[in-house]
């Protein structure tokens, strides 16, 4: 007996995967320009009946900090932020992220905005989920040109946090902190292992059987469309309209 296949978008599937990685935590923070991670955090909260606390840093309504911009970082430094999201102009196989320059630092060919909080939050937030919807050899490189924040540190460096996963438009990598490498966790429906290999600039571990990323359940899709989408529309109106409103 099989259920009829559900109709869902890539964004909904990615948000479902990320919500699974967030799981049962106390506090998830989401930075600016991150509609899919924000969807995932709100989905995790809807599933958890109000937990985790979700801080959407660019929202007025979903940002409870009252002590200025520093409060998030002080909070994270104490271990009070359990999960956060980072992206990068480049990400490499050791989990290093580059948000600064490509080419010579003094006279680069490409200049990105800057490191934001990454050079700190990557060290002190236990579960950092890397997220990059462009999965290509341009973005997933053998070695980043500039390390905004390193994936791993020497043993004597204070480090309670770091990467747990890298989610792209093609697949889900888990990060193995001991091996300092990514491990292919699943390939999204409609994509293949060969395609992932062809478009990834770094080496990664591959299981004997590569699972397909599971589709979101009917209940998950209902929660996203009915509960999460209206909350998301406050901050990402265009995204909410495009992804969640039936054409």
């Amino acid at each position: 007996m099989t259920d009829a296949p559900l109709d869902f978008s890539t964004e909904e599937m990615l948000a479902d995967v990320i919500a699974g990685l967030i799981g049962d935590l106390r506090h998830v923070a989401v930075g600016a320009a991150s509609p899919i991670p924000a969807t995932a955090a709100l989905l995790a909260r809807a599933r958890g009946g109000g937990r985790p606390y979700v801080s959407l840093l660019q929202s007025r309504k979903h940002n409870f900090f009252t002590d200025g911009g520093r409060e998030l970082f002080d909070c994270a430094g104490q271990g009070r932020v359990d999960a956060f999201f980072l992206s990068g102009g480049q990400i490499d196989g050791q989990g290093n992220v580059n948000l600064v320059t490509i080419g010579d630092y003094e006279k680069p060919t490409v200049r990105f905005p800057g490191s934001f909080g990454s050079a700190y939050l990557y060290y002190v937030v236990p579960r950092v989920i890397l997220f990059r919807t462009e999965h290509s050899r341009r973005t997933l490189v053998p070695r980043v040109d500039f390390i905004s924040a390193p994936g791993v540190s020497d043993d004597n460096v204070f480090r309670t946090g770091g990467p747990v996963a890298l989610i792209t438009n093609r697949c889900h990598f888990a990060f193995d902190r001991a091996a300092k490498r990514f491990h292919l966790q699943s390939v999204h429906p409609g994509h293949t292992l060969e395609e992932v290999r062809d478009n990834t600039g770094f080496d990664f571990d591959v299981p004997t059987q590569v699972p397909e990323t599971p589709a979101p359940s009917g209940e998950t899709l209902r929660l996203m469309r009915e509960t999460v989408a209206p909350e998301l529309a406050e901050i990402y109106p265009e995204f909410a309209k495009r992804v969640f409103e039936p054409v």
Binding site: Y105, S115, Y120, Y123, F146, I147, S148, S153, F158
Partner: peptide, 13 residues
């Protein structure tokens, strides 16, 4: 003092 930064190119520069 501040945590983080060690091993980054932010600190290196």
């Amino acid at each position: 003092p501040l945590r983080g930064l060690i091993g980054s190119d932010v600190l290196a520069h």
